[in-house]
Simulated assay, not measured.
Amino acid sequence: MKLTRHMILIMLLLACGGFSYAQQSNLIVSKDELVLLIDLRSSKPNLFNVLTRAGIAGTNNSSVLQGDFRSIINQGWKLKEKQKYVVQFNKPVTVNTEKIPSKPYLITVDLIKTEGRPGYPSPVPYGVNKFSKLTVMELPSGLTRFFLPGNQKARKVQLSGDFNTWTTTKGLMLKTDSGWINDVKLKPGIHAYKFIINGHWIHDTNNMLSEHDGHEGLNSIYYRYNYTFKLPGYSSAKFVSVTGNFNNWNVNEIPLAKRGSIWQTDLYLQDGMQLYRFNVDGKWVADPANQTKIKDDKGNINSVINLGELATFKLNGYEGAKKVCVAGSFNHWKPDNLYLKKVNDTWVSPLI
């Protein structure tokens, strides 16, 4: 299937065949045509995001939301149907019918929302990258390489983001035979970035994670990883995931991939005490390689990892006590959750 290179094809199977989406514009590929649904109540950033992935350039988002569709029609899209708020446009594409399923698929991206100001996302509990084509990668040197494919006729390309205070004078990218590259030193965590091509700002269209840039566009989001979850064995398992307090125990959100005899996944985890356990085909499994475990109030055995600078809690005396626990905001003030060990005359527990 040949589609415009500005389009990202991450396809999520629709639960039904109908095209109905509340207050959000969408782009769908269905058999031999693209279907563009514009909800006139959608936000300008959402509309900008969808039009970019449809390869539609030079539109005035405000005019489109007010009903002026000339810039879309002039680029080969046919107005198919208009209801109260939703307008449908169709455009034929060349399709290999042997490789594409018959049901419609949604082409979409994930918008990240943090409490930080635009361009400087605030810390998040965890993060997993999502690319249609890998354009950001970690090098053995410890540097992070950003890659902008194509654009061979560009005179000047720059990389700008929160890591270089959104510079417009530095961040020059090096031209290669396949695109442009720039290697930077990143700290673990969430980072926002864009490319500047001949003075024009664009987000990374191969990166499926983005945030609103505070104007009418998007910033791309990249997570610099700092942790790897591993689970050996379970060679016959069909689905293995990891879940914890960092993702509200969502069992389907972070799947592990099988690499040889080990199930594993890389991700970013925020500093602090993290509780977690694996799920293997619906069954809970504590990490056999991690001896630090605690039982929650539901009786589940959770593995514990501590990331960041260690702080040791100590309590002197209480020689006759059978058990001593520590509670605080770090464990939501839960009693019988974190136990201290008796060392001589002192109860001790290393925590974050």
Rank of each mutant, 00 (worst) to 15 (best):
L269H: 03
N279I: 15
F147E: 05
W284H: 08
A327K: 09
E211S: 15
Q274N: 14
N302D: 12
R145S: 14
N90M: 02
W201N: 02
S141K: 06
V157E: 02
T292I: 12
L14S: 09
S160P: 01
R117A: 10
V35K: 10
T4D: 09
Q75Y: 12
K194T: 15
R5H: 10
I112K: 01
S42N: 12
T169N: 06
V87G: 04
T4S: 05
Q270N: 12
N337E: 11
S220K: 01
Y227G: 07
Y276C: 09
L40I: 10
F146H: 08
N164K: 04
G18M: 09
N96W: 05
F278N: 00
R5I: 13
T165M: 10
L36A: 02
E98A: 10
F147S: 07
P92Q: 02
F278M: 02
Y223V: 00
G320F: 09
H203W: 12
L40E: 15
W166C: 10
P288N: 06
F246L: 09
I254L: 06
L51Q: 02
V157T: 04
F147N: 06
L12H: 12
R155V: 03
V35Q: 05
I100Q: 06
P255Q: 06
N90Q: 03
F147R: 11
I8F: 00
T265C: 07
K133M: 07
A57K: 14
N74A: 11
D162Q: 11
L307D: 01
S25I: 07
T243S: 08
E309R: 11
K153P: 01
N90S: 05
D39C: 09
A154T: 03
G171K: 08
S349T: 00
L143E: 14
T135A: 01
V242S: 01
K130I: 08
A311Y: 04
W166Q: 10
A311R: 07
L111N: 05
K334A: 11
L174S: 14
A15T: 15
Y21K: 14
T292D: 15
N219C: 08
V251T: 12
S160A: 13
V64I: 15
I73A: 03
A321L: 08
L47N: 00
A327L: 14
F246M: 07
Y227H: 15
T59F: 07
V87H: 05
S62D: 13
N290W: 04
P149S: 03
T265N: 08
T168M: 12
L256P: 02
T135H: 00
H191P: 06
K78I: 13
F48C: 10
R117C: 05
N198L: 04
H191K: 01
K130Q: 10
K44W: 00
N250I: 12
S178R: 14
P92S: 04
